[in-house]
Design a binder for these strands. Structure first.
Length: 222
DNA sequence: GCGACAG
DNA sequence: ATCTTGTCGC
C-alpha cells in the first residue's frame, strides 16, 4: 500500500519530539470510514542474532479472522528504545512491510499506544497518519494516565485519564483477565475503537490481529 | 533527588 | 522485549 506522508528517521531525540508535536495536529479523533472488510495486525521483534528488527504485517478477513495476506521483513535498528519515542524505533520496518502489502486494510490495530502518550502521538497515531488509514492503539501495559480497575467482566472498561483529559480506555477483553489499554490512533473514535477491539478479541486477551502478527514474527525468528 | 517509563 | 526468583492474592 501507499505511504502518503514521509519524513526523515535518522534524527536526534530532540528533533523527534518536535516532529511529534507537529504531526500530532494531523491526528483525526473521530470515525472517518465506512465499511470494514480487512483488518491489519502489526508486530516487531528484535533479533539479537542479526542485531536487526523483524516486522510482520498480516491482513485478516474480518468475518473469519483468517489471514489473507502477510509480509515479514528485516530492517536495521536506527533508534534506541526510549519510552515516548517508540515509533522512531519500530515504524521504519513496519512502514517498509506495509509498502509490500497489496490489500489495503480498512483498519489497522497496533501493538502500542495511540494518543495515550505524553505528546498525544503514540506509535498508532504515527502509523495512521503516515498511511492515512483508520488505526487503533492497543497496549498491553500503561505508558501514562491514571485509572481505576474496571469490573472483571468482559466488555467492562474505565477511562484512562491524564491531566483530567480522557486519553483512552482500560478495557477488559476476557472475564477475570488483565485489561488492555485502548486509545485513538487515527480516523476513529475511542468508542468505535473499543467496539472493534472487543469484536477482534472473542477468545483471548489480545486482538487476533496482534496475536497473529506476533506469531508470525516469532516463527520467523526461529 | 527519586520513581516511572508502550516494546 | 527477555530472563527469572520470590511474593501475593484468591
Amino acid at each position: 500500500m501507499e505511504q502518503i506522508l514521509n519524513h526523515p528517521w535518522e534524527i536526534s531525540e530532540k528533533e523527534a519530539i518536535v516532529l511529534q508535536y507537529s504531526l500530532a495536529e494531523k491526528v483525526i479523533k473521530q470515525d472517518e470510514f465506512t465499511e470494514v472488510n480487512y483488518v491489519a495486525g502489526v508486530d516487531v521483534a528484535y533479533s539479537k542474532r542479526s542485531d536487526s528488527l523483524i516486522a510482520a504485517v498480516v491482513i485478516l478477513e474480518v468475518n473469519s479472522l483468517k489471514p489473507v495476506e502477510s509480509v515479514v521483513i528485516e530492517d536495521k535498528v536506527r533508534f534506541p528504545y526510549v519510552p515516548g519515542l517508540f515509533s522512531f524505533r519500530e515504524l521504519p520496518p513496519i512502514v517498509k512491510a506495509f509498502k509490500r502489502i497489496k490489500i489495503k486494510p480498512d483498519l489497522i490495530v497496533c501493538d502500542g499506544q495511540g494518543i495515550a502518550h505524553p505528546r498525544r502521538f503514540g506509535l498508532a497515531c504515527h502509523l495512521g497518519v503516515l498511511l492515512d488509514t483508520p488505526t487503533i492503539g492497543c497496549g498491553k501495559t500503561r505508558l501514562i494516565g491514571t485509572f481505576v480497575e474496571p469490573e472483571s467482566q468482559r466488555g467492562s472498561y474505565s477511562p484512562l485519564i491524564d491531566n483530567s483529559e480522557v486519553i483512552g480506555k482500560v478495557l477488559r477483553t476476557q472475564n477475570n483477565v488483565k485489561p488492555i489499554f485502548v486509545s485513538i490512533g487515527h480516523r476513529i473514535s475511542l468508542e468505535t475503537s473499543c467496539k472493534w477491539i472487543l469484536e477482534l478479541s472473542p477468545k483471548y486477551r489480545l486482538p487476533e490481529t496482534t496475536r497473529q502478527a506476533d506469531h508470525l514474527v516469532k516463527t520467523t525468528l526461529t
